[in-house]
């Protein structure tokens, strides 16, 4: 197997997913469990990719189908989690939006149908080597990512405008918006410029997962931070001199 930069990035992305997942589970215990389970699912998805990649190779049909469809399925499940987060936050703030879940599901269904129709309309003039399942998977992934991106941004605006309490839920929603826009950007680049743009995916995946992992694991308030033994071992009193000088000037 040829280990190019893309493969190494992909491997690094898998390691980042695992580390972020473990870190999120350790730091926050049972809070936002659905988000953390989804994170674990992302890691499982990477393991599935590696299995197909090593068994069938990067240019195989099986790997291509698994690659796009597994990504679409996890993005879709992520959308359901965003809807669930919105419901929970609004319920906590005693805000009721009628038909919220039904409306959201109808929109998601609509996106699926539109992607299906748009793809198969174009495939009528496609050469035979472009398989319908791969193109449809790519299109669905792009559209689901775009829908997730817009849903996350709208939810963040709604949380801010309706003064729903909670800093961490905002960070997680913003993290989802980053994740979906980072998925939509390379996928739409693939649609516009061709499949060589798929090399962008691992870079964006590492960036967005680091953001989301940090958003989940970071405490709600600063007062939950505690000095750690490791930090105490790195304590360097001479590094405090600039601060002392500044304080002296301010006092004078």
């Amino acid at each position: 197997m040829h280990w190019s930069l893309g493969f190494l990035l992909f491997a690094a992305g898998t390691v980042v997913k695992f580390a972020a997942c473990v870190y999120a589970f350790i730091r926050t215990r049972m809070k936002y469990l659905s988000v953390k389970i989804w994170f674990a699912l992302l890691f499982a998805q990477d393991l599935l990719y590696w299995f197909f990649l090593l068994k069938f190779g990067p240019n195989s049909y099986a790997y291509a189908v698994v690659y796009f469809w597994a990504d679409f399925i996890t993005l879709f499940l992520g959308l359901i989690i965003v809807i669930r987060l919105a419901e929970t936050s609004f319920r906590k703030a005693q805000i009721q939006i009628p038909y919220f879940r039904a409306g959201a599901m109808a929109i998601l269904g609509g996106i699926g149908v539109l992607s299906f129709v748009a793809t198969f309309q174009k495939l009528a003039v496609a050469p035979h080597h472009v398989h319908a399942l791969i193109v449809l998977g790519n299109k669905l992934e792009q559209n689901a990512a775009a829908a997730g991106m817009l849903a996350s941004v709208l939810l963040f605006i709604a949380l801010t405008v309706l003064l729903v309490p909670g800093a961490r839920v905002r960070r997680i929603v913003a993290g989802f918006a980053i994740l979906y826009s980072c998925s939509a950007l390379p996928m739409s680049a693939v649609q516009i410029f061709g499949f060589q743009m798929a090399n962008l995916v691992p870079w964006f995946a590492m960036f967005d997962l680091a953001f989301l992992g940090y958003a989940i694991s970071e405490p709600e308030n600063l007062d939950q931070l505690r000095p750690r033994k490791l930090a105490a071992r790195r304590f360097q009193p001479h590094r405090l001199e600039p601060a002392r000088e500044l304080l002296g000037k301010a006092g004078a």
Partner: peptide
């Protein structure tokens, strides 16, 4: 979607 996702 490409332009929108960059802005978002």
């Amino acid at each position: 979607i490409f332009v929108g996702s960059a802005l978002v």
